[in-house]
Design a protein around this nucleic acid. Sequence first.
DNA 1: TGTCGTTTACTGGCCTGACCAGTAACCCGG
DNA 2: CCGGGTTACTGGTCAGGCCAGTAAACGACA
Lengths: 253, 253
Amino acid sequence: MSFTPVQKINAYEIIVDQVEQAISDGTYGAGDRLPSERQLMADFGVSRATVREAMRVLQATGVIESRPGDPRGPVVTAFSPRVLEKSMAKLAQLDSVSRVELLQFRLLLEGHASLLAATERTDDELAEIARRGEDIADLADQPDVRFGERVNRFHQAIRRASHNQMLEICGNVVGGVMAEMIDRRLTSETDRSSRVRTSAHDARALVAAIRDGRAQEAAAISTGNIYRYYADDLSSEETRRLATMMESYGAQM
Amino acid sequence: MSFTPVQKINAYEIIVDQVEQAISDGTYGAGDRLPSERQLMADFGVSRATVREAMRVLQATGVIESRPGDPRGPVVTAFSPRVLEKSMAKLAQLDSVSRVELLQFRLLLEGHASLLAATERTDDELAEIARRGEDIADLADQPDVRFGERVNRFHQAIRRASHNQMLEICGNVVGGVMAEMIDRRLTSETDRSSRVRTSAHDARALVAAIRDGRAQEAAAISTGNIYRYYADDLSSEETRRLATMMESYGAQM
DNA sequence: TGTCGTTTACTGGCCTGACCAGTAACCCGG
DNA sequence: CCGGGTTACTGGTCAGGCCAGTAAACGACA
């Protein structure tokens, strides 16, 4: 016989749980309106302060949105990756998550996004990918535009064409975090222009591979490009930890 | 010239931002104590209700923990993936995410976890993996123990040995969601025992591959096993969407 | 009849002030 | 030096109130 530890639950938590339950069992769906705070206060038999704390939590976790003055009450929001992004960004910036881990994870996501995009993409998506790819080359004449962000948009189009939402969202998060890191670090102009050149070149090759459905090649190009971007800064230990993964994609190191 | 949309910021949000800022710039670190609500109320020049709403948000996002009666005030918590897990779980349970997408994503994570574990694992981790693998075989005599959960624990040990926290956390979430799906669906006893047998067999092969550092093989076994588990239920279209990925791991379909 | 401003009845945001149960440091008697 | 009671705090919750904002209902005017 085992005892389960008693965990005292605050009043506001009960409200949060009930609302989440009501949403997950379909009582409320995206776009529906919750009762007003004053109504909830009567329904749950608690004070308004307690209701408000519960609303704050639901709002912070991306479950509802509320706006002062709207007589229709708080609205149940459709899923948005905002919360996911924030917590993942926090994880990524954490000291305990090393650069290698982040890079490994990114290679993994981008590699497979390219792989899937090569077979799943529609023609419209291919066109969008190609357009974003050309945008990178244009960077050569635009010294003030952020490089990391532009490249990330290219990869974003690929992730979308993978037709896998989990992959897409997670990739967007990690890609966004790393793009920001790049733009914060990139200072030297000569360095920038050389990076623009190689990235634009890789992008064209990648677009071609995706166009022709050469999935493995697409993955190899994609991961190879990302890898080479960071290669200079890596220690030998870090390089070793990436080797197995790069090999699995058949990419050049 | 572009204008940025005005975004009204609530009082509590300002408090949240300031506290998060103070933590990210090192003013407060894990384990440190925030001032009491009454003190913060004086510091920020707001009412206690507002301070409390801010505290609730910080608590919900896993930044602080607070306990009634503690004269030392709320404690700044070390990062915990709890929030990330929750939002990830929400993503995985999203209706718009299809079975194939979830399975694709899982194959991706488990495949690379096995790949990395083969080269990065310590001896202790290998022992733990082997132990969890044998636990699966034991299931044959324990009809009441949940199959999906047990297999997930095995994979969990592998994910841990990959030495990549992002991979580990995401894998745990997706693995957990799918394990639950399995246990909800698995009813027939003859079906169960046959699945136990094949899974136990695959687990032994996987442990051996990881032990010997045969990374690619480990990934192939891992993904192959997971795939075969669901293969019967897949439509031909779903099978097609998985083919490219399975091929990239060199796994049998 | 249809349009457009105004009213109105709400909404959420925030404040004040209060009571309670819990905690841990402090202090004092042994 | 030690142990138990005291005390000064903590967070949890409540009641009631004011404000600015919103949108729907309304009514006047064309």
